[in-house]
C-alpha cells in the first residue's frame, strides 16, 4: 500500500489568489505563505480528502494542462511530491500509509 497525503486541518487553511502567486494563510500558525503553481492547486485538490501522489496527479490532469519544463528531468509526480514535502515541513500537510489511514477511520 502507498503513501497518502492530507491537509491537517482543512478548515484552517485559506487560499487567496493574487496573480501568478497565491497567498496561503495558515490559521494555526498565523503565517502567510506566498506560493506559486502547482502548490495552491494541490491544496485545492486535496481539500478534505487523503490522496496519493498518483491520485493528485490524476485529479490535476482533469482540470489543467500539466507540463513540466522541457529541460527538466523531473516528472510531474516528482514536482507534486516535492511540494507535498514542503507543506509537510510547514506543518500544513501530513502523510501516512494508506493501510494506517484505513485502520484509523
Amino acid at each position: 500500500m502507498g503513501t497518502i497525503y492530507y491537509i491537517k486541518d482543512n478548515n484552517n487553511v485559506r487560499l487567496h489568489p493574487l496573480d501568478y502567486m497565491t497567498l496561503l494563510y495558515d490559521r494555526l500558525s498565523g503565517i502567510t505563505h506566498i506560493v506559486a503553481e502547482p502548490a495552491p492547486q494541490i491544496i485545492e485538490t486535496l481539500g478534505s480528502q487523503a490522496l496519493s501522489v498518483e491520485q493528485i496527479e490524476r485529479e490535476l490532469q482533469k482540470q489543467y494542462d500539466l507540463k513540466v519544463f522541457e529541460d527538466s528531468d523531473d516528472s510531474f509526480a516528482d514536482i507534486i511530491t516535492a511540494r507535498l514535502d514542503e507543506f509537510i515541513d510547514l506543518g500544513i500537510i501530513d502523510k501516512c500509509d494508506e493501510e494506517q489511514k484505513v485502520k484509523l477511520t
Partner: peptide
C-alpha cells in the same frame, strides 16, 4: 507593480 510583489513589500 504586481499585487504579489506589493503584498510582500507591505508585509
Amino acid at each position: 507593480v504586481l499585487p504579489s510583489e506589493a503584498f510582500m513589500r507591505l508585509t
